[in-house]
Design a protein around this nucleic acid. Structure first.
Length: 733
DNA sequence: TTTCTGGGCCTACAT
DNA sequence: GGCCCAGAAA
């Protein structure tokens, strides 16, 4: 049987195995389609089978198909799974919103006043650019933090607003307007775009150039958008523009998993789809193939309190299974110890592997305790996010050099590389060079060839600048004839980046290792051959790569990941940690209750990642911002029916003597700490104390903090503990 | 003018 | 616990 026959049979088999709702989605060929796909409802299977079916039916050619996702990982997976079912899918466009837009933009950059060699500014570059702007405006960065403007500008762009179209409601907005305008001018001079621009400029391109829009519309006969609930206004517009004519638009999403409101995503895009396309077919996938009924019931108990949601409820035929384990531990270290104990136990007695387990937390900072404890206990783990590979200094330095070689107009990039390694060139020199380049209207590279012609440039900076200029020009000449990997190598050698890290002490090895890894990644672009195009591709894909993209399924180890990045993944065993008021829900949502529904969804997303077992943990004290504070179980925990919670409350005994049932005790805990700030110490070192769980001990140290008195106590039986004098059940001996 | 160092300050989630 | 900035030293 030829390969295509085999594939056809496989496709047929897949379609047969679908439930009725799934099959209806797969067999829908034309016209608008909205699929509400609940967590674990087989969404990816439906999407890939549907694409394969469209191709197999001869409905479209692969190149006429556009599928948009939010992560490269999802895109890669979709492409691979379709390729297994039909052959010749190379021309199909499957990518993230940002990479798809970047691809369209590079093709017609000059139509909207850009060149194809534009660079993409990441969050760091963006902040650096804003700092420059604020400096030019003589604004105090203390009173006007760059991050705030970055946020406001990003929000405006997400809604397709520009500095001249943002609504003015007060003097604050006028200030924003000027910062915004100068920021845009700086980016334009630098031939750079920020993340949001990729979408905004593409929308602008399609709106202003009718022939470009017409060509894309004619090409993409079928458009498919995943995670539609996470689209913002600009992304919505991009999709609408492309699909308006043929209306073969299929969107998939779940309003209960909308957790990106803070970056401009608007759930209404999915909730109002039927208004945009009244003839749309709406399909709900409510059968869950992932979790046990107990897990689904628990997740539903949390999400059901949201009022504005499309009514639906997941069900499964997986009855039985474990109840939800809820545990309150003393602090974040013991929380990690508890998780480690449980993982060790599951490996020992249930034949689980570390790779079956995941620890989900709200903030990256929470990973630390787990890294420490797992490291000590030799439990293998893989950390997703945190100090990201792409944000490591050596990686950024190296890429910044390549970016500047690629685009010598980039003043922000120039400022970044000019003194790495140390060249005794400071901000004053940089300012002089950038100002002169702007005045003469030449790029920075040509100016470096004649530093004596730059007014105001300190004498000491002239020679090193000339050397740097010669190196960069030499490297730029190599650009046409070398692959990205080779150019990277030449750059590291010529600039001496590896030598710069030689004295870097204990981090040296890690840094050099990261450089080697970066080189390995660059090698993936060897297939495009030498030249500018391959380099451009490497640089833009590298800046659009996300942390989950690097997540290797085969790699073994407990996954440590934030609740946001875990969306779309699943694990047999899930530990959702730090389920406390202040983390889940986050402090900001407690201050601003309009954000509460999204917090519920964050929690819901976390819970529904679990296949077989779900643990929810919280701590009694938590170390945050360098100081230890009282913590309180999340209000969401109190919404779980007691019948779903396992009667086990290990670890909780360390906090207070067991009474009644665990959920009863949760209900008794106050929501907010109300302890008055102590003015004088109640204990001194040497005091003898007794604790119901730890026994008797001696106070080693007493420290007054802002809201509490923190005690270090050495217990004879339980070792050294840090306790709160106002909260711990201590008595003097 | 640049580099170094100590102290104040904040600190989600991320393409 | 890390980042940014002010002030001192080179």
């Amino acid at each position: 049987m030829p390969a295509s026959e085999l594939q056809r049979a496989e496709l047929e088999r897949l379609v047969q195995g679908l439930n009725p709702a799934q099959r209806e989605a797969v067999e829908h060929l034309r016209g608008p389609l909205l699929i509400f796909a609940g967590a674990g409802s087989g969404k990816t299977r439906v999407l890939t089978t549907r694409i394969a079916n469209l191709l197999a039916q001869g409905e479209v050619e692969p190149y006429q198909l556009l599928a948009v996702t939010f992560t490269n990982k999802a895109a890669r997976e979709m492409r691979e799974r379709v390729a297994r079912l039909v052959s010749g899918v190379d021309g199909m466009w499957v990518g993230t919103f940002h990479s798809t837009a970047a691809r369209m933009l590079r093709r017609d950059a000059e139509r909207i006043g850009l060149t194809a060699s534009f660079v993409i500014f990441d969050a760091d570059d963006q902040r650096a650019a804003l700092r420059r702007v604020l400096d030019d405006l003589r604004l105090d960065p203390k009173r006007h933090p760059p991050a705030l403007f970055a946020n406001l500008i990003s929000q405006a762009k997400n809604e397709l607003l520009s500095y001249d179209t943002i609504p003015l409601r007060g003097p604050q907005d006028e200030l924003l307007g000027s910062v915004f305008r100068l920021y845009e001018e700086l980016l334009a001079r630098s031939n750079a775009l920020d993340f949001d621009d990729l979408i905004v400029k593409t929308v602008g391109l399609l709106r202003s150039e009718a022939d470009v829009l017409g060509a894309w519309r004619a090409r993409f006969q079928q458009v498919l958008v995943d995670e539609y609930q996470d689209t913002n206004r600009a992304q919505y517009m991009l999709v609408s523009l492309l699909a308006a004519e043929h209306r073969n638009l299929a969107v998939v999403g779940d309003d209960d998993q909308a957790i990106y409101g803070w970056r401009g995503a608007d759930v209404r895009n999915i909730l109002d789809f039927k208004k945009d396309y009244p003839d749309a077919t709406v399909i709900r996938l409510e059968q869950n193939y992932r979790s046990t009924q107990a897990i689904l019931d628990a997740a539903h108990a949390v999400i059901r309190h949201n009022s504005e949601r499309a009514d639906k409820r997941l069900w499964t035929d997986r009855q039985g299974g474990e109840l939800i384990a809820v545990a309150q531990l003393y602090n974040e270290v013991e929380e990690a110890e508890y998780v480690a104990d449980e993982i060790a136990r599951l490996i020992r007695s249930e034949n689980r592997r570390p790779g079956d387990c995941a620890v989900l937390y709200r903030t990256n900072a929470q990973s630390r305790a787990f890294e420490d404890v797992f490291g000590r206990r030799r439990i293998p783990y893989r950390l997703v996010g945190g100090v990201r590979f792409w944000e490591r200094r050596e990686v950024k330095d190296c890429l910044s050099y390549l970016r500047f070689i690629f685009n010598p107009a980039d003043a922000v990039g120039f400022a970044r590389i000019v003194n790495v390694p140390r060249r005794k060139i400071g901000p004053v020199s940089v300012e002089a060079v950038v100002a002169q380049a702007r005045a003469e209207g030449v790029d920075l590279l040509s100016l470096l060839g004649r530093p004596e012609g730059v007014p105001g440039l300190p004498r000491a900076a002239q020679a090193p600048l000339a050397v740097l200029g010669a190196d960069l020009r030499a490297l730029r000449l190599e650009m046409a004839g070398q692959t990205p990997a080779r150019l990277l190598e030449l750059t590291v050698e010529r600039i001496g980046l590896d030598r710069a890290y030689e004295e870097a002490g204990p981090q040296r090895e890690a840094r050099l290792e990261n450089l080697r890894e970066l080189r390995g990644l660059a090698e993936e672009y060897d297939e495009y051959g030498p030249g500018e195009e391959a380099l451009g591709r490497f640089l833009s894909e590298v800046s659009l790569r996300s942390d989950v993209d690097a997540l290797d399924e085969d790699e073994q180890g407990v996954t440590l990941i934030t609740l946001h990045m875990v969306k779309g993944l699943e694990f047999p065993i899930v530990f959702l940690v730090g389920v406390e008021d202040g983390l889940v829900p986050h402090r900001r949502a407690i201050e601003d209750p309009t954000q509460m529904p999204e917090e519920r969804r964050v929690c819901y997303v976390g819970m529904t990642r679990a296949r077989d077992r779900l643990y929810l943990t919280c701590a009694f004290r938590r170390h945050l911002y360098g100081q230890s504070q009282a913590a309180f179980p999340s209000r969401f925990l109190k919404e779980l029916p007691a019948s779903l919670i396992a009667p086990q409350n290990r670890g909780a005994a360390a906090v207070s003597p067991p009474r009644a049932s665990f959920s009863d005790r949760l209900r008794e805990q106050p929501i907010a700490p109300a302890a008055p700030a102590p003015t004088s110490s109640r204990y001194a070192s040497g005091d003898r104390v007794s604790h119901p769980s730890f026994g008797s001990g001696t106070v080693v140290k007493s420290t007054l903090t802002r809201s509490d008195e923190e005690l270090v106590v050495r217990f004879e039986g339980a070792g050294v503990k840090i306790l709160s004098a106002t909260l711990a059940p201590l008595s003097r001996l």
